[in-house]
Computed example of a mutant assay.
Amino acid sequence: MKIVVIGGTGLIGSKLVAWLEEQGHEAVPASPRTGVNTLTGEGLAEALAGTQVVVDVSNSPSFEAAEVLRFFETSTGNLLTAEAAEGVGHHVALSVVGTGRTPTNDYFAAKRVQEQLIEKSGIPFSIVHATQFFEFVRGIADESAQDGQVCIAPVLFQPIAGDDVAEAVGRVAVGTPLNGGVEVAGPEQYRMDEFFREALAASGDPREVVTDPHARYFGTEVSERALVPGEGAALGRIRFQDWSADRP
């Protein structure tokens, strides 16, 4: 089966392409690096020729409100139009757990717009909602830093390894369209402040993690369960301690 992976040269995309190839599928990485630009439409028709499944794991280069919304609206719109013209039978998108629970978060709001475009497209689809990746822990800490301290709310947190995300998306991609969504998360749940305190200490980061119930997550206060999945979520196999032990 030919599967085109939009964002296929990125963190999750490259892992997904490798996983699909291991399963015997023809996985085609598509990104500006390979001559495919979903914002302009360049190379889309050529890349999608003969494709049965399209998986979109691309991400906005900017998290600024207007830019992130423009990216997901334009990119997704162009992609769905090209898929309809080619007769693609399954559109799979990677999204975030909690997009409907924190509408004041600009990124989550833009991802929800993306989801709605997919839902209304008429193309059979599946949406994989994943929790935050282990690979983004340092970036989240940097975003939460103030005056040398990392301010984190004590809400629930259940991050997942990028490898587990790629496998979960891959399994959905080779299956029957869900015409709905599924949630995936890491195997362990924490209090977010406690997780970052332990994670930064383990990595040798000297910054103090301060527990602040009003700390913002990328500009927005989040509720107790905003970042974790509901019951029935698929859980990854890789524990954070094991994942971090494999890193320098």
Score class of each variant (00 low, 15 high):
residue 108 F to E: 03
residue 3 I to V: 11
residue 188 E to M: 05
residue 221 E to P: 08
residue 138 R to T: 08
residue 119 E to W: 01
residue 183 E to T: 05
residue 126 S to T: 15
residue 155 V to C: 02
residue 123 I to H: 07
residue 53 V to L: 12
residue 172 V to P: 10
residue 1 M to H: 10
residue 130 A to N: 12
residue 202 A to K: 01
residue 186 G to I: 01
residue 163 D to S: 12
residue 172 V to E: 15
residue 228 V to Q: 10
residue 90 H to Q: 01
residue 217 Y to F: 15
residue 129 H to F: 08
residue 212 D to Q: 05
residue 122 G to H: 07
residue 86 E to H: 06
residue 146 Q to K: 07
residue 109 A to K: 04
residue 115 E to C: 02
residue 67 E to F: 01
residue 60 S to K: 00
residue 103 P to I: 04
residue 37 N to V: 10
residue 51 T to S: 06
residue 203 S to N: 00
residue 62 S to V: 04
residue 132 Q to C: 07
residue 102 T to L: 13
residue 189 Q to L: 11
residue 203 S to W: 05
residue 14 S to M: 12
residue 11 L to I: 01
residue 224 E to P: 02
residue 160 I to P: 10
residue 117 L to V: 00
residue 223 S to K: 12
residue 44 L to R: 00
residue 25 H to D: 04
residue 52 Q to L: 04
residue 48 L to M: 03
residue 141 A to I: 03
residue 166 A to G: 05
residue 122 G to V: 04
residue 228 V to W: 03
residue 229 P to Y: 11
residue 4 V to Q: 07
residue 179 N to E: 13
residue 147 D to I: 00
residue 121 S to F: 02
residue 64 E to V: 01
residue 40 T to V: 04
residue 86 E to P: 08
residue 147 D to H: 12
residue 120 K to S: 12
residue 31 S to N: 10
residue 40 T to G: 15
residue 239 R to I: 02
residue 64 E to M: 00
residue 210 V to M: 05
residue 54 V to D: 06
residue 199 A to E: 14
residue 17 V to N: 13
residue 235 L to Y: 11
residue 216 R to H: 00
residue 70 R to F: 01
residue 69 L to F: 03
residue 189 Q to C: 15
residue 35 G to D: 13
residue 66 A to K: 15
